[in-house]
Lab assay of single mutants.
Amino acid sequence: RKEMTAACTPRRRIINLTSVLSLQEEINEQGHEVLREMLHNHSFVGCVNPQWALAQHQTKLYLLNTTKLSEELFYQILIYDFANFGVLRLSEPAPLFDLAMLALDSPESGWTEEDGPKEGLAEYIVEFLKKKAEMLADYFSLEIDEEGNLIGLPLLIDNYVPPLEGLPIFILRLATEVNWDEEKECFESLSKECAMFYSIRKQYISEESTLSGQQSEVPGSIPNSWKWTVEHIVYKALRSHILPPKHFTEDGNILQLANLPDLYKVFERC
């Protein structure tokens, strides 16, 4: 597991931080080997919608929660590849102030007048994250320049770009939802926020969305749709870069829909 690298990086740093090793061990302890084997050997059937997909393993048909699986995938990559990410360069710098204002204007932020003026909160978020810029760049390849612009994001899987519609809320939550006081809790909560931002979430995906850094293989055609990215990038990574937690067998994120021999018997009677 320590050699797990989802995106190509030129050289690998050895990380011996106790906090990170502890988080890696927790993933191992909570892992479910049968689910790992199923995901490793599954045959992708198709997307139901951005949140759900169908896959077959041996004779069984499964309904998989793409949102939760991708979130767990990105969390584990962030923990196992800690401080070893490439950088996704933004085509132009994104001012943190503008991103924070967009987030505060969104109902998702939960902002009320009692929280104070949005401009003041946005300025605080910019200054707060600028103070964390060195650590964010060093460990997470999340790059913020001296003017308070976001200029780079971590490359977690080759050819995958997170849904940038979720970027404003991500920046807001970096400042408000991460435990910045304790090292282990900081790395864990920061990785979880980043994983949620990178995950496939239906509120940020339309039929026209593209999450891939590449064009489709047909010359002159439109960019790959999110469905292509889910199948050929995300579920491909799920084959080798995730140890599913045991609770996925109990919380409805992986559901067995049918045993195909039983279905064949039904059709034979028709």
Rank of each mutant, 00 (worst) to 15 (best):
C186M: 02
I144R: 01
E127W: 15
S191M: 02
H241S: 07
E26D: 11
K132M: 02
S199H: 02
K265W: 15
E113F: 11
L61I: 05
P219F: 12
D158K: 08
A103D: 00
G116L: 15
L35C: 09
L238K: 02
H57A: 09
E37W: 15
N179S: 05
E165Y: 02
E26W: 13
V230D: 02
S221G: 10
Y139I: 04
V20H: 13
E268M: 12
S216I: 08
A83S: 05
Q51T: 07
G220F: 11
K246W: 15
E217T: 06
F128Q: 01
E3H: 13
Q203D: 12
E217D: 10
N84H: 12
K227Q: 06
V266M: 15
R12D: 14
N149Q: 07
Y80Q: 03
R173L: 00
L99R: 00
I205S: 08
L156W: 00
I14M: 11
A122D: 00
D115C: 15
P93W: 01
L172V: 02
Q30P: 14
E188W: 10
A175K: 02
L102W: 13
S106E: 08
V34P: 08
N179L: 06
T5R: 12
P162S: 00
E177I: 14
V218F: 04
E33Y: 14
V230A: 08
S206M: 08
L211E: 06
M38P: 03
H232M: 10
H42G: 12
E29C: 13
E217S: 06
S189R: 02
P93M: 02
D138I: 05
I144Y: 01
L174N: 00
E123H: 03
Y124T: 02
L190T: 03
F97G: 02
I77R: 06
L167Y: 00
A103E: 00
K60P: 11
Q76K: 08
L63V: 07
N179F: 07
Q30C: 05
C47F: 03
M135T: 02
F248C: 12
T229I: 10
N28Y: 14
P95H: 10
L142K: 01
E182P: 01
F248E: 12
L90C: 08
E143Y: 09
Y80F: 04
E3L: 12
L35H: 06
G166F: 12
Q256T: 07
V87E: 07
Q56H: 07
E123Q: 04
L121D: 01
G120C: 15
G148A: 04
G120H: 14
E71S: 08
A83V: 02
E183M: 04
E127I: 14
F97Y: 03
Y139G: 06
G166S: 11
G220M: 11
C8Y: 11
T249Y: 06
P223A: 08
M135W: 05
K2H: 10
E26V: 06
R1W: 15
M4W: 13
V161S: 06
I242W: 14
H241L: 13
L156V: 11
S43N: 06
H247T: 04
G252I: 10
D181Q: 03
T18G: 09
G46P: 00
N179C: 06
L150V: 07
E71I: 09
P162Y: 00
L102Y: 12
G46N: 03
E127A: 03
E188D: 04
P95E: 06
E188K: 06
D105M: 08
E268V: 12
F187M: 04
L21M: 03
Y62M: 09
C270N: 15
V48D: 11
I77T: 12
L153P: 00
L63C: 11
W52M: 03
K184H: 05
S199P: 01
L35W: 09
N159C: 07
N179R: 03
R89M: 13
L255R: 04
T249D: 06
H40Q: 12
A122R: 00
W111I: 10
P107N: 07
Q56A: 05
V34H: 09
G166K: 05
E71P: 00
E147S: 06
G252H: 08
C8R: 06
L96Y: 00
E268R: 10
R13K: 08
T210W: 06
L88S: 11
L153V: 06
F82V: 01
G152P: 00
D138W: 04
I14F: 10
P219M: 10
E182N: 05
E33L: 12
L64S: 10
H241R: 08
R173H: 13
F140K: 01
I242M: 09
I125E: 01
F267W: 14
P244R: 08
E250N: 08
N149Y: 12
L23F: 13
E193C: 12
K60M: 12
E114M: 14
H247L: 14
M101K: 04
L211G: 08
T66Y: 02
E92I: 06
P154I: 00
G116H: 12
Y235G: 12
A6Y: 14
S19V: 12
A237W: 13
P163T: 06
E143I: 09
C194Y: 07
H232W: 15
R89L: 14
P245Q: 10
C194G: 04
W226T: 06
I171M: 05
E217W: 11
R173P: 00
P95V: 04
L63Q: 09
S240R: 09
T59L: 10
S199R: 05
E108H: 07
S199N: 01
E182Y: 14
E26R: 03
Y264I: 07
V178A: 01
Q58G: 11
S91N: 09
H241P: 14
T249G: 12
E3Y: 14
I169C: 11
L39A: 09
V87D: 11
S212D: 07
G110Q: 01
I171P: 00
N49F: 14
H57R: 14
E113P: 05
S225L: 11
